[in-house]
Amino acid sequence: MKYRQAAVAGQFYPAEPGLLTQQLTHYFGQAPSVHIIPKALILPHAGYLFSGEVAAKAVSLLRNRPSGYRRVLLLGPSHYVGLNGCALPRSDRFITPLGEIPIDRIGIEQLLNRRLAIASDMAHQREHALEVELPLLQFCLDDFLLLPVVVGAASPEAVCHLIQAIADSDTLIVVSSDLSHYHPYVDANRIDTDTRSHILALDPHLAPEQACGCDALNGLLAYAKLMQWQIKCVTHTNSGDVMARVQARGPRDDEEVVGYASFALY
Rank of each mutant, 00 (worst) to 15 (best):
D143M: 08
H79F: 04
Y182N: 09
T171L: 06
D142L: 12
L116G: 00
V186P: 08
V174D: 11
E100V: 08
S180F: 04
V151D: 01
L162C: 11
A165N: 10
L88A: 02
T193G: 09
A87W: 02
I95T: 13
A87H: 05
I106H: 14
D142N: 14
L134C: 06
C140Q: 15
I95E: 14
H124R: 09
L112N: 06
V174W: 01
V186W: 07
L179F: 05
D170W: 08
S176R: 01
D178Y: 01
G82S: 15
Q138N: 09
D142G: 13
A188M: 05
D104R: 02
I173D: 12
D142S: 14
D187E: 14
I173S: 07
L162V: 00
C140F: 08
I191W: 06
L136P: 03
A87E: 06
I191L: 13
L130Y: 00
G107I: 02
P77T: 12
F139R: 13
D143E: 15
D143S: 15
R114F: 00
G85F: 12
L147W: 01
A117Y: 03
S78F: 12
D170I: 04
I103L: 13
G68Y: 08
Q164I: 07
L98G: 04
I101Q: 02
S176A: 07
Y80I: 01
I191S: 04
F144E: 03
D192N: 05
R71K: 13
I118S: 10
G68I: 07
A123S: 15
I173E: 12
I173L: 11
A167V: 08
H161C: 12
L141R: 08
V81F: 12
I101S: 00
C86P: 01
Y185N: 09
A119H: 12
R115A: 13
P89D: 00
S78M: 06
G85T: 02
A129E: 09
V159E: 11
R190D: 08
P102W: 12
G99T: 04
S180A: 14
H79D: 04
I101G: 01
Y80D: 06
Q164N: 13
V174P: 05
L162N: 03
A119T: 02
V174Y: 02
